[in-house]
Each structure stands twice: as structure tokens, then as C-alpha cells.
Simulated scan of single mutants.
Amino acid sequence: MKNLKKKLGLSAAVVLSTLTFATAYAASSVPTTSTTPENPNITYIKTDEPTSYRIDQLKKIAMYYYWHGGDLEKAEKEIFKGITLKGKYDVVEHAFKEATLIDPYNLDLKFSLASTQIIQKKIPEALQTYKQILNLDPNNFNANLLYGVYSKINGDIRAYKSAISKLKRIDSKKANEYIRKLKTTESIINSKLNTEVPQHLPQKDHAIVILGYALADDGSMRQPLMERLKVGLAIAKQYPHSKIIVTGGVPKQGITEAEAMSNWLISQGIEKDRIILENKSTDTVENALFTTAILEKEGIKDVTLVTSASHMRRALTVFKEASDFYDKMNGKNSNRNFTNVVYLDYPSIEEAQKVSKDEEFVIYRDLFRVSGIWQYPGLQR
């Protein structure tokens, strides 16, 4: 086994025969690991370990691969032996699938499985998983909501209408709130993307929010981020009194996206005191939540979002929802206004205005996440 660990390394050994479902329980022990690369100690779990312990290890495996990935080629060749792995989310899915076999009563595990299937665009499988939840708990609000909306995107309007009717019976107030959110999102999906700097933006209480993009392993900025910065810089020059918020907290070589963006803007002549760093977020949902806290603190009423065209509708959706949430939490109505300017990552603006089914799924998935429905209950928003 020591030779096997050296051969596979941490990322492959983390899953081992835990996920070889047909033979998992025939084995005498299951190698696994903690979820952080800083603590790579591998332990061995016998199959007669307590149920909660085995489930906990499977959740750790899922979250490890969700964040860090692993050597899929070796895992497929030397561990899974016949199971085709197309990406790290295959491992996440298999881990949650195994966990649901160990505890078929745990609905949170089923929600996590369905979320991973949505990420992988396995829509029929995800809908079936939500259906299992509803068979066990017909009045589960979140399951009815997710099943209904994803069914609609998938072309099943009847299932959507039935789900909405059920939601109104379960909790009419909450159902009407989500109906409003869905209508707002539909309006955003159909809104115009702007490639030019808007005229007549407010000269007061206005901020330009430039959304980050993952840095290269050496800490350098990739082209999409550079292009977003160029768009943001053009707006900043035209509106010299506007604050600039740069977002992104995933570090590479000791620097976050926000820090790299700030350094670049300063090198282009932007005053340092105009720039505010949001350097804790790991994805678009956290961009919105953490940036909205800054907007509240700074008293910003008008926001111009800057990101890629393929990302803008999702960004507008989650920022609007985050802003509405902060209003509700603070018992006020900020009437915060959002405008947009995009880096055009399509051949033409006409192509950019078209919304694919895949984009719709991601938009609504992140709407639900920012509204408070965790993607992986208790593990990952």
C-alpha cells in the first residue's frame, strides 16, 4: 500500500476504493484523506467504521475534489478500473452517490448529489434525484422550487407550473418572493449588454465593480481578466469621481485577483485611494455578497458591473439578489441601480445577446445559491 500511495500521490489516493462502488464493501480498508493540501495525512478506514464516520469521509473526498481536483488519468486507470472519469466532478458525484447509498434517508446528501449533476449538465439525472427527494418529502420547499425551475429550463412547462402551485400551498409568502426573483431574473436574461461606456452615469455615490477571473498558476493575469480591466479603466477615466471595486480572493503565488487588478490599475494611472479591494471571494456568488457589503458601507447607490459578456447576465442576477437581500436584512429600500459594460468574448454583440440553455441553468443555479439555498447543504454555498 505504501508503494501505491507513492505511485498515485495524494489526489488519487484520496478516493481509492471508496468510490469503486461494486467492490467497496468487499475490501478490508478504504484509504482516504483530509480535504486540505496542507494536511495530506492518509488514514485507513475499515468498512466496519461507524456510519457517520464513513459518510463524513465521503463528504471530505467530494469537497476535496470539488476544490482541488486530482490525477484523473491515474484514478481511472489504477483505481476505478472501467469507470470513465471526464473531470473532477465525476469524483464528487460518485462520492455523494456512495454516501446516499450508505444513508438513503439523508436528504442533504441527495441535494448535494443533484447539485453535482446540475454542474455536469446531467439534467435528467438531477431531476430524478430531486424527484426522489420529493417522493420522500413532498412538501420540501427547496426541492419543489429547484425541480420546477430546472424542469422549465429543460422544456417541461407543465412540471414548472405544478411546482409553483405546490409552492404556493406550502408557503405562499415565500413562494411569491421567489416568483418575483424569477421574474427579475428573466428580465435580466433579456436585457441588453453594453460594449460602450454609458453616458450620464451618476457623478456621486457611483462605483465601477470589475469582476475577477482566475489567475494563472504563476500569479499572472489571464486575457479575460486583462480585457475586463481595460473596460473598467475606460469607464474610470470617463468618470473620475467613481470608486472602483476589484473582486476576487483566490491567491496564486501569494497574490489575489483583487490585488493583481489593483496593481494594474495603479500602473495605468488610477489613484490608489479610488480602489477598494474585495479580496475574500472564491466565485461569482461570493463576489456579489461580499461586494454588496462594501457598497452598503460606502453608501453606493449606483453600480456599473464590468465582466465578460458570457458572464454578465449571471453577474447582474446575483448582484441584484444580493442587494435585495441586504435591503431586507437592514429593513430598507436602497433602490440600487445596476448598469453593465462587457468585454465582448463572442464574435459579435448579436451572438452575445443569445442565451443558451446551459447559461440559463448556471444563472438560475447561482440565483438560488445567493438567495440562501446552499449548493451542498452545510458544506459549500
Rank of each mutant, 00 (worst) to 15 (best):
Gln253Pro: 06
Gln223Trp: 13
His241Arg: 13
Pro251Ala: 05
Asn263Pro: 02
Val246Arg: 00
Lys230Leu: 14
Gly248Ala: 07
Pro224Arg: 11
Gly248Asp: 06
Asp218Leu: 11
Tyr213Trp: 13
Lys230Ile: 14
Gly254Leu: 10
Ser262Tyr: 10
Lys237Cys: 05
Tyr213Gln: 10
Lys237Ser: 06
Met221Ser: 10
Ile255Asn: 12
Leu229Gly: 03
Glu227Thr: 11
Ala214Trp: 02
Ile244His: 00
Asn263Arg: 14
Lys230Met: 10
His241Pro: 03
Ala236Glu: 01
Ala214Asp: 11
His241Phe: 14
Met261Ala: 06
Lys230Tyr: 12
Ser242Leu: 04
Met221Ala: 14
Ser262Met: 13
Met221Cys: 06
Ser262Arg: 15
Met261Pro: 02
Ile235Leu: 09
Asn263Phe: 08
Leu225Arg: 02
Ala236Phe: 01
Ile245Trp: 00
Val250Leu: 12
Gln253Tyr: 10
Glu259Gln: 14
Lys252Thr: 06
Leu225Asp: 06
His241Tyr: 15
Ala236Arg: 00
Pro251Cys: 02
Gly219Ala: 07
Ile245Leu: 05
Val250Arg: 13
Met226Phe: 14
Ala234Ile: 05
Gly232Val: 03
Ile235Asp: 00
Ala260Thr: 03
Ile255Met: 13
Asn263Cys: 06
Gly254Ala: 09
Ala214Tyr: 09
Thr256His: 07
Gln223Lys: 15
Gln223Glu: 14
Val231Ala: 05
Gly219Met: 09
